[in-house]
């Protein structure tokens, strides 16, 4: 076990020296989680808009279900995706297990309910306000949905950032379907778990630091987006 202060020193030199392995891990992490959030937004925003706009029996039940799915345990998602993608599974023929694509799929499943549920709340409030005006103007449902998505774009960006925060920080799903293979599927969280267990605290600390910075910047971005949306009275 290294000395703690030595670990801090090493971590700093890894970051400041733009260590290649470290960079590779960070880039893959961002690629996987950003792709997952993008896919989740493509599914989640329209889904959120649809459930905000349509009134059908069972709508309340769907809202409850979506909220419950927000808390999906990553390891359970990982397990299910693993089973689907494994050789014997229904999607085994695609040979995706232990690839970044498998990790993207798992994180998309993890993040979509978050984005759908949060964006539904945002757009439901806005819909309540716009509804009579839209009905007066006879706006068709599709157009109501796109208008809600566009008019809540600032709030939806913060929703997407919340999803990104969840994706980049989770370890359970990616470790199961990615396998933490060096130079292939190793991302920040899985690397931290591995390096810590190997006693290589320097790399773990360096990655932990980067992760922390990312989390902080996501929060800062959310905060400033909210502020500028409020200033423009778009929120």
């Amino acid at each position: 076990m290294q000395d703690f202060s030595e670990a801090f020193g090493l971590a700093a030199s890894l970051i400041l020296g733009f260590d290649a392995d470290l960079g590779e891990i960070i880039v893959l992490s961002l690629r996987v989680s950003l792709s997952a959030v993008l896919l989740a937004a493509l599914i989640g925003f329209p889904l959120g808009a649809l459930t905000a706009v349509l009134s059908f029996p069972g709508r309340q039940a769907i809202a409850v279900l979506m909220n419950a799915l927000m808390g999906l345990p990553p390891v359970v998602v990982g397990l299910l995706v693993y089973m689907a993608l494994s050789r014997a599974g229904p999607l085994g023929w695609m040979n995706l297990l232990y690839t970044p694509m498998a990790m993207i799929i798992a994180q998309t499943i993890l993040v979509t309910p978050i984005i759908a549920a949060l964006s539904r709340q945002v757009m439901e409030d806005m819909h309540r306000e716009y509804d009579e005006q839209f009905r007066s103007l006879c706006i068709p449902t599709r157009r109501v949905m796109t208008a809600l998505i566009w008019d809540s774009r600032y709030s939806l960006l913060t929703v997407a950032l919340a999803g990104f925060g969840r994706a980049i920080a989770e370890v359970g799903a990616v470790i199961i379907v990615g396998g933490n293979i060096d130079h292939l599927t190793r991302v920040m969280t899985t690397a931290i778990a591995l390096e810590t267990s190997k006693g290589n605290l320097a790399l773990a600390l360096a990655l932990g630091f980067v992760l922390l910075i990312l989390a902080l910047s996501v929060n800062a971005a959310v905060y400033s987006l909210r502020a500028s949306a409020k200033r423009l009275s778009y929120a």
């Binding site: 716009y130 005006q133 103007l137 006879c138 809540s152």
Partner: peptide
Amino acid sequence: AETLRRRQALVFQKPVLMRRSVAANIDFV
């Protein structure tokens, strides 16, 4: 019915404006 409502317009007591620019509010219709 809706076909009749299309030919009418109502300005509400409390205006409902979209979170867009002034021009975009008109462009919307």
